[in-house]
């Protein structure tokens, strides 16, 4: 049995790992990937110590930092269930099961899906959830960005240099991102903004070639070759049995990163912490590891 299991290796999980090493804990990290959403981010200009760094570069720095320690890391494993029992916490994955005296859930968030016909079929066949990664493949094409918040506007700004034309499909009556981004997007002649608009269906053959949308009562079909889905994020914590969550399914934590379950802590974007930022997730990871250490000192 481990002292601690950390689920997730984004900024929160990695920082928790660094602190767990320094506290001499016997621990295991389980994660689908390294870097989490940081690795999918565009440019990062607000992480202390770096005036400017790209998301993938910062994720590589995180990995470099933990690779200097001899950490037990299960990469590419998906946690399917965590369960608090009388004397330990059991973690089940798609590849095995593990137990520990304490747990830090730092599994972050993932892209919300549209849930419309054609979305699954055309994923990676023109439809993507990562404009930063896949944008360059859409050179000179007409594309749709779905979402009128900051992530949709960021994706639009990134794509402007690459694609021919961008339709922004936004279900709200107006764009909801930062004013400075809205002004830039509105001023660009390559961009058509469709507010109060819903996606009905995505169609194509091998690759997608059209999207059916509805603006108030009016339906229309746009001929496009790319669709970038940027409609927000949902927390990765369906696996956590018995854990208290808020109304948007984020894990509720107290100022010491404790959840309602004794010995179970949580950190970063998967929690109800105010503000979701890379640097905040990293700080929360540190706090969670220190709280777990304090807890273990009491129970061990």
């Amino acid at each position: 049995m481990y002292d601690l299991i950390i689920i997730g290796a984004g900024p929160a999980g990695i920082t928790a790992s660094v602190y767990a090493v320094r506290k001499g804990l016997d621990f295991l990290v389980i994660s689908e990937d390294i870097g989490g959403q940081t690795a999918l981010s565009g440019d990062v200009a607000n992480y202390t110590g770096y005036q400017f760094i790209s998301g993938p570069e910062l994720a590589a720095k995180f990995e470099e930092h933990i690779s200097q320690y001899n950490i037990s890391l299960k990469e590419g494993e998906t946690v399917t269930q965590t369960k608090k029992t009388a004397d330990c916490i059991e973690v089940t994955t798609n590849k095995g099961s593990y137990s520990a005296k304490s747990l830090i859930i730092a599994s972050g968030k993932r892209s919300r899906q549209l849930n419309v016909p054609g979305e699954k079929e055309f994923k990676n066949r023109g439809l993507t959830y990562c404009a930063t990664c896949d944008g360059p493949l859409f050179k000179a094409k007409d594309v749709v960005v779905i979402g009128g918040g900051n992530s949709g506007l960021d994706a639009t700004m990134g794509l402007l240099k690459i694609v021919n034309k961008i339709y922004i499909v936004n279900n709200a009556p107006q764009l909801t991102g930062d004013k400075i981004l809205i002004e830039k997007v509105e001023a660009n002649s390559k961009v058509t903004i469709l507010n109060s608009t819903q996606v009905l269906e995505i169609k194509g053959e091998t690759f997608l070639n059209e999207i059916k949308i509805k603006t108030e009562a009016k339906e229309q079909t746009l001929a496009v070759e790319g669709i970038f889905v940027e409609i927000g994020l949902i927390p990765n914590c369906e696996f956590a049995l018995g854990i208290d969550k808020n109304q948007i399914n984020e894990i509720k934590i107290d100022p010491e990163n404790r959840t309602n379950l004794e010995g179970v802590f949580a950190a970063g974007d998967v929690t109800d912490v105010i503000e979701k930022q890379i640097i905040i997730a990293a700080g929360e990871g540190a706090k969670a590891a220190l709280s777990a250490f304090k807890y273990l000192s009491r129970v061990l």
Binding site: I34, L40, G42, T132, P136
Partner: peptide, 13 residues
């Protein structure tokens, strides 16, 4: 690969 894709960097590494 593309320069902005994290999994590309990881695969190359």
């Amino acid at each position: 690969s593309t320069p902005s894709c994290s999994f590309c960097h990881r695969a190359k590494d």
